[in-house]
C-alpha cells in the first residue's frame, strides 16, 4: 500500500453571503496516496474548486473547519509563513484558464524563476535560469531558451498551460492539484496535456488530484474517483468499479448524459434541474432528491451517509438500490449487485 500523502477529514468550507455562512464543501473526507491520481468529478457549482482552494489555503474570506493532514501534519493550523513554504513546493496547483493564470507583464522565465527563487533560494541566478529552461523542456516546449524570454501573450493557450504546469512541478511537489487543467483547451491539445500529466506522474511519485467535469478525462486518467454533488462526496471508488458498476443515482445520471459511440441512435439522459446555489440548497435529507422527482419519496433516507458497499467502494445512502431511470422498468432497474 502506498503512503498516505493527504488526509482530508470532515472538511467544511463556508462562504459568507449576506451575513450568513453557507457551506460549499460540506463534510468532505478523502485521502490521496502517493503515486495515484484521484479524480474529483461533478457539474460546475458542486464545490470542486472550493475544495481545491481549501487544500491550498487559497481562500481569503472563507470559514474552514475540519482537518487537512499533509503527511500527518495538520495544515489548517499552519501560520502564513508555513503555508507559503508548503505552497508551490510540496503542494502545488494547476489552474483552469491558462490565458489568465500568468502575469501578463512578466517574462515566462521570470515566472518560473520566481517559484524556484521562493523555495530554492540557494540557487544562483545562472542555476535558476538553467533549471527553468530544463523545466520548459520537460513540459514539452520546443525552443525553451527562446520561450524563456517571451511574454505570455506571445504563446498559444496550450503552450501557456504547459508553462503553468512547469511552474507547478518546478519543485517536485508531492501533491499536485489540477483544477480542470484541460477544460479551456482544444481536444488535441487536451490529449497532449493529459499525456504530459501521465508522464509526469510516472516520474514524480506524486499524488495528483485531478478536478474535472469531463468523464472521458476521468476514465483515461484516474486511479480512484470521487463524485461530488452540492458540496458532498456521493460516491468514491476505484475507476474500474465506478465506470463498471456506478451506484449513486448522480453518478449514473452523469454517465448516461455523455454522448458516446453507443448513444448515437438514442436520446441522452438529461439530469433535470440545476445544481442549486449555496443559498437555495436544502441541506436536510438527500441533496440530489429534487433532481430525480420520479423516485418515490418513501425510499429517501433522512440523513444519507457514505457506506462501504464493497471494499473501497463508498456510496452515500442505501437507497441507490431503489433508483431507476424514468424510461427503465421499475422491476428490472438494477443490473449487477442486488
Amino acid at each position: 500500500m502506498n503512503e498516505k500523502l493527504l488526509e482530508i477529514k470532515n472538511l467544511k468550507t463556508s462562504f459568507r453571503i449576506e451575513d450568513q455562512y453557507y457551506a460549499a464543501v460540506d463534510d468532505v473526507s478523502l485521502t490521496v496516496n502517493e503515486n495515484e491520481v484521484l479524480a474529483i468529478v461533478g457539474e460546475s457549482g458542486c464545490g470542486k474548486s472550493a475544495l481545491a482552494f481549501s487544500l491550498m489555503r487559497l481562500h481569503n474570506r472563507a470559514k474552514i473547519e475540519g482537518d487537512i493532514l499533509f503527511k500527518g501534519d495538520d495544515v489548517t493550523n499552519y501560520s502564513a509563513g508555513q503555508v507559503n513554504k508548503l505552497r508551490g513546493n510540496e503542494m502545488s496547483m494547476i489552474f483552469q484558464d491558462p490565458l489568465t493564470a500568468l502575469n501578463p507583464l512578466m517574462k515566462i522565465g521570470d515566472q518560473i524563476g520566481e517559484v524556484l527563487l521562493l523555495h530554492k533560494g540557494k540557487f544562483s541566478n545562472l542555476n535558476r535560469k538553467q533549471k527553468a529552461i530544463s523545466l520548459l523542456d520537460k513540459v514539452g516546449i520546443a525552443r525553451p531558451e527562446h520561450v524563456y524570454e517571451q511574454f505570455p501573450h506571445e504563446l498559444s493557450g496550450g503552450m501557456r498551460q504547459r508553462v503553468v504546469i512547469a511552474i507547478a512541478i518546478a519543485n517536485d511537489p508531492e501533491v499536485l492539484i489540477a483544477d480542470e487543467p484541460t477544460t479551456a483547451l482544444d481536444a488535441t491539445i487536451q490529449s497532449q496535456i493529459l499525456d504530459l500529466l501521465n508522464e509526469l506522474k510516472e516520474n514524480m511519485n506524486a499524488g495528483i488530484i485531478l478536478i474535472t467535469h469531463d468523464l472521458g478525462v476521468v476514465a483515461e486518467m484516474a486511479d480512484r474517483v470521487a463524485v461530488m454533488y452540492a458540496g458532498q462526496i456521493v460516491e468514491v471508488a476505484d475507476v474500474h468499479a465506478l465506470f463498471g458498476m456506478p451506484q449513486h443515482p448522480y453518478t449514473r445520471s452523469l454517465l448516461s448524459s455523455v454522448p458516446n459511440a453507443e448513444s448515437v441512435d438514442s436520446k441522452l439522459h438529461v439530469i433535470q434541474g440545476i445544481v442549486p446555489s449555496l443559498k437555495n440548497l436544502t441541506r436536510e435529507g438527500c441533496r440530489f432528491r429534487s433532481r430525480i422527482p420520479w423516485i418515490d419519496e418513501s425510499v429517501h433516507e433522512k440523513s444519507p451517509e457514505l457506506h462501504e458497499i464493497s471494499p473501497n467502494h463508498f456510496v452515500r445512502c442505501t437507497c441507490y438500490k431503489n433508483f431507476y431511470f424514468p424510461d427503465e422498468k421499475k422491476e428490472d432497474k438494477r443490473h449487477g449487485i442486488s
Binding site: S191, G216, V217, A219, E220, F243, N260
Partner: peptide
C-alpha cells in the same frame, strides 16, 4: 486520425489501447 485519437474514451478498460493508439 489525430482528432479521433484525442477523444477520451469513456471506458477505463480501454485506457491502454487508447494511449497506444494515440
Amino acid at each position: 486520425k489525430r482528432l479521433v485519437a484525442a477523444i477520451p474514451d469513456i471506458n477505463p478498460e480501454n485506457r491502454r489501447e487508447q494511449i497506444y493508439y494515440r
